[in-house]
């Protein structure tokens, strides 16, 4: 098991300041998800930890030892790349064994480790194939296998599921979570998909334009977002923002999760229903209050009539207040 610390990491590419003073503490055995919109610097941070980029400033420590001056191969970690990066000239077996070969392990040992991992990932029947003869999902498994087979204490994932279709993605998500429980390795997992983040992570680090906005458990992030950005980025359907004047807090902006709103006769807000989306188990209702858009979830379809005027009740305990200017949370 390995713990990872990033301390005051800054990274510039030419004129562009990509990572801005990022400090992170990842516990041994933890599954940490780095999430944020595309282009925010997630991969850069991950690659800095891997040693594929060096920070302009700051330090990376693995198990308490600074590794910024070490090559990737000396850091004792493995990595799954977004485009899988399988060696095209090698068979699946050789792909898996590549790192073990470099370590100089005896062939018998290599074969048994490869076999073990292949069984774990159910790719035993693919061992003789070349990467070009595999489907996307199979390549993905091989890429994960190549990282697992070296039994490193730290495994890095860079958007490993983004090239898969939805069904495969949710299955692999489940399997990666299971693999974490089996191996117990520390995992740092990069994604732009907040569903992946909340389902996989022990903790989530939300990154925005190179700034670490918040790091906390999925539940804490969802219930107590640090600022407006985190509140809007985590959670589907997205949180609603209304001017504070509706709640007597003109200095603030109010965030209301869709599930904190329901249609009730004795509701305190008047709204007009614009559209209803049927989502199987529930409806997503699009409404307006004095021209401000509001989405909420309802188990039932809102009946037509009354010009679609309805009354909404808001769970006041679940409101989030954010400073209008800075976006920071006001408690």
């Amino acid at each position: 098991m390995a713990s990872v610390q990033c301390s005051h990491i800054n990274k510039d590419f030419g004129q562009h300041h990509i990572l801005k003073d990022i400090s992170l503490d990842i516990k041994s055995g933890e599954f940490l998800v780095l999430v944020g919109p595309s282009g925010c610097g997630k991969s850069t941070l991950l690659r800095t930890i891997a040693g594929l980029e060096s920070p302009t400033q700051g330090d990376v420590l693995i198990d308490g030892k600074s590794v910024v001056h070490l090559q990737p191969r000396q850091r004792g970690l493995s990595m799954v790349f977004q485009n899988y990066a399988l060696y095209p000239h090698l068979s699946v077996h050789q792909n898996l064994g590549f790192g073990l070969n470099l370590q100089g392990l005896p062939q018998v040992e290599i074969n048994s480790r490869v076999k073990e991992v292949a069984e774990l990932l159910q790719i035993q029947h693919l061992l003789d194939r070349r990467p070009k003869d595999l489907s996307g999902g199979q390549r993905q498994r091989v890429a994960v296998g190549r990282a697992l087979v070296r039994k490193t204490d730290l495994i890095l994932f860079d958007e490993p599921l983004s090239n898969l279709d939805a069904a495969l993605r949710s299955q692999m998500r489940f399997e990666i979570k299971k693999l974490h429980q089996i191996t117990g390795s520390t995992i740092i997992y990069v994604t732009h998909d907040q569903v992946e983040a909340t389902t996989l992570g022990d903790r989530i680090a939300v990154l925005n334009q190179g700034v670490l906005e918040q790091i906390a458990t999925p539940c804490q992030i969802y219930s107590y977002p640090n600022n407006r950005f985190v509140a809007s980025f985590i959670g589907t359907p997205e949180i609603n923002f209304l001017p504070g004047k509706f709640f007597g807090r003109p200095e603030a902006e109010v965030g209301i999760r869709p599930e904190a709103i329901c249609a009730k006769e004795d509701g305190q807000l008047e709204a007009v229903v614009e559209m209803q989306e049927y989502l199987g188990s529930h409806y997503l209702i699009h409404a307006r209050i004095n021209g401000f858009a509001l989405r909420f979830i309802s188990e039932h379809c809102i009946p037509e009539g009354n010009n679609r005027q309805i009354k909404l009740k808001v769970d006041m305990a679940k409101l989030h207040f954010f400073d209008k200017a800075t976006g920071a949370r006001i408690s």
């Binding site: 594929l52 990066a85 060696y87």
Partner: peptide, 15 residues
């Protein structure tokens, strides 16, 4: 050739 190929090899333990 995608750079990630060599990067994968480097992470895997090669110079």
């Amino acid at each position: 050739i995608p750079k990630s190929l060599e990067e994968a090899a480097q992470v895997d333990g090669s110079t």
